[in-house]
Design a binder for these strands. Structure first.
Lengths: 207, 207
DNA sequence: TGAAAACTACCTGAATTCAGGGATATTTTC
DNA sequence: GAAAATATCCCTGAATTCAGGTAGTTTTCA
């Protein structure tokens, strides 16, 4: 089992490497961001499995998984992250990753996941499936597309603008701004502007 | 060198353990949160060194460091985290920790840090000192001192809680919450909660 | 031990947000 | 050309936030 590790924390990578080697796997490469991971695949006999973190600089795990599932269809992917939010999990499942385990799991889980995926099956921890299903009962959290206008409003909200200020700035009625506000919260399943700004930053909608 | 590891990600702990053992250290215990770490110290011959993560459930690293530096003065502490925000670093330095390294550093750094601290000196990576000083030269980014309570309120605001909800959760009057809210905005020179959340995320106060 | 800081609580009143409706015009997409 | 998405606008009413105060108690620390 040839494995490529992608995680921006070297210390974590090195620790995982030990464990994987002990379990009889060969770590053929490491990458500290998405770009490096893809570059590795272009220049080498590619591995059988990619252990992928979500949170990385340059290019995040979601993007990497997307590209890989397009171009390197036979490469297995196990997502290895500390994010247990349904949002991320569902996104990854949709892309067709082969496993999803949390960093707070132990070595046994890691090895079990690799073994399972190696044999052609999928591996998802208990917590994962649980979280996803809890999410399905709330169909609201399906990542929804925001319009250009809505993104604009979000940025203004993050800039501490009030509805009235935004209305003047965009030459719109304040009712319109209120409608946009309402629709944004509805689409994203949020409760107020504070939550919106947090969401927006997490998802890179604003810097 | 007897070491106690405190980190909520088991996978990370196990990886680090390998490296430390290889470097001739003895990992005498692990803890998945602050409470466990302190409990360990009460029940065992305590170790020489504590490797401490900041972000943990139950009791975070800052609190742990504080308590330890009060009660177990000869126990060394190396903070091992992915947070490189001056806010955290300065907080920890103030508490008198003996080392501060980032998880994106490699094994060499880890070993070097342990060796250095073992010999009685302090160890701080390049990035760390850099970030702290950059903070000093830019007085803007010195987060005006926020109190513990205020930080707590900020986190709740970011969690979309209303004043009433926070009041009930913290067993306080809603007037009190409103006062905190007001003081926070005043201290940071902000206008509303949306701006507050953005500020908090940028400065690593939340997430 | 005494001052400063932090935490607590209350008040008034204006401004703003949020939840729930409904409606129309334009543009894009199929 | 029809359907869907987008952008615009309006309304009511409750809830919440924000700005401006005052003030007592506890904790911290020099």
């Amino acid at each position: 089992m040839k494995i490529l590790l992608a995680d921006d924390h070297r210390m974590f990578i090195e620790g995982i490497s030990y464990m994987l080697r002990e379990a009889g796997c060969e770590v053929v490469g490491i990458a500290q961001n998405g770009t490096e991971a893809l570059a590795f695949l272009q220049q080498n006999d590619y591995p059988d499995l990619l252990m992928l973190d979500i949170e990385m600089p340059e290019m995040d795990g979601v993007e990497v998984a997307e590209k890989i599932k397009e171009e390197y269809t036979e490469l297995k992917i196990i997502v290895l992250t500390m994010h247990d939010e349904p949002e991320f999990i569902r996104q990854m499942l949709k892309l067709g990753v082969d496993g999803y385990i949390l960093k707070d799991a132990g070595k046994e889980i890691l090895v079990e996941a690799v073994e399972t995926v190696k044999s052609g099956k999928k591996y998802f921890g208990e917590k994962i499936t649980e979280n996803v299903f809890s999410g399905f009962t709330q169909p609201k959290s399906i990542p929804t597309k925001l319009t250009q206008r809505e993104l604009e409003i979000i940025r203004l909200i993050a800039d501490q603008k009030t509805t009235g200020q935004m209305a003047r700035e965009l030459f719109l009625s304040k009712h319109t701004i209120e409608t946009h506000r309402k629709n944004i919260l509805l689409k994203l399943g949020l409760k107020n502007s504070a939550g919106l700004v947090k969401y927006a930053m997490k998802h890179g909608l604003i810097e």
